[in-house]
């Protein structure tokens, strides 16, 4: 089955990000394909490359990066939600002349059309609310 996932909650602040990561890992293990993970609302903060996880807690950002880099899952971050929360890739850093790119390169910053495409291209669209 082809599955798309929406993540609405910030890592650590909301259980949604961790639950979504677990769901994605399990789905892959069971042989399903993840078409796209779309990060929306505070969910975009999963891309924060400068976060440091507490030593006694799971590193959620690293978990998402692993999903993207080791399993080839597309990690899409809503551009409008990302910019106002300080999540910038190198292109957006240059465009807005900011000091640093804050989003990890495993994540791509995309428009909202990709959210709708994620819904239409998948057999199931699963939302993890904040």
């Amino acid at each position: 089955m082809v599955i798309s996932i929406a993540v609405h909650g910030a890592p650590y602040a909301s259980a949604g990000s961790r639950t979504a990561l677990r769901f994605a890992e399990s789905a892959l293990r069971l042989g399903h394909r993840i078409h796209r993970v779309f990060f929306y609302h505070d969910g975009v903060l999963a891309a924060a490359g400068q976060g440091v996880a507490p030593q006694d807690e799971e590193d959620l950002h690293a978990g998402w990066v692993r999903l993207g880099e080791s399993h080839g899952v597309e990690l899409a971050v809503c551009i409008a939600n990302a910019l106002k929360r300080g999540m910038l890739d190198e292109a957006e850093r240059d465009r807005y002349e900011k000091d640093a790119a804050t989003a990890h390169p495993a994540f791509t910053i995309v428009g909202l059309g990709q959210l709708i495409e994620a819904m239409t291209a998948a057999d199931r669209f699963v939302t993890f609310a904040a």
Binding site: Y40, H41, A80, N81, G113, I116, E117, M119
Partner: peptide, 13 residues
């Protein structure tokens, strides 16, 4: 507000 933005785009598509 952000949810409504996504609804508008769904309408466009």
């Amino acid at each position: 507000l952000e949810a409504i933005e996504s609804i508008l785009v769904a309408g466009v598509f």
